[in-house]
Simulated assay, not measured.
Amino acid sequence: MNIALIAHDKKKKDMVNFTIAYKKILENHSLFTTGTTGKRIIEATNLKLYRFLSGPLGGDQQIGSKVAENKMDLIIFLRDPLTAQPHEPDILALMRLCDVHNIPLATNLGTAEILIKALESGNLNWRNIID
């Protein structure tokens, strides 16, 4: 499965900790990230991933294009709903695309863990049925 990992600045540490905790699951999938988030994940985990541009330069939109092309299966976008900065990726466009194309999108650690555990158990294979 193709999985995108994005995090607002104040959630990057949470994303790194999440990828450390679920490294064994994530390493079996194709991972895509925005630039800075990906750099931090690589430094902490050595996971192999593809880094798009950083969020302010359009990395979230590059991931969105993969959603529109039906080339993304799951997105984890840890967002900071209270203090997101203007330069950070905007989740609204990505959320809309995920809703249009029925792509699971987690915006917090609780939902992200549920999706990862479903992925691990094989219960997130509905995309194989549709495709």
Rank of each mutant, 00 (worst) to 15 (best):
E113Y: 05
N123T: 12
L57R: 10
T111K: 12
N102S: 14
N46H: 07
P104H: 03
Y50M: 06
I20V: 12
H8Q: 09
T33Y: 09
L74P: 06
I129V: 06
K24W: 05
C98V: 05
G35R: 00
P81Y: 10
I114A: 13
C98N: 02
A68I: 13
K48M: 08
K12E: 05
H8R: 12
G58P: 13
R51F: 10
K48A: 09
I75Y: 03
I103M: 08
S65Q: 12
N46F: 00
M72Y: 07
I3E: 02
G110P: 07
E43A: 13
I129G: 03
F18Y: 03
K10Y: 08
G55K: 08
L5E: 00
I103E: 01
A84C: 13
N28E: 12
N128T: 13
L57W: 14
K23E: 12
E113M: 13
A84R: 14
M15F: 13
D60K: 09
N46Y: 06
T83E: 14
A112L: 01
N123C: 12
K11H: 12
Q85C: 05
R51M: 11
Y22W: 08
E69C: 15
A118V: 04
M1E: 03
F18I: 03
K11W: 08
K23I: 05
Q85P: 08
S65M: 13
M15A: 07
A93W: 04
N70A: 10
L94Q: 04
K117R: 07
N102T: 14
K10R: 15
Q61E: 06
I42M: 05
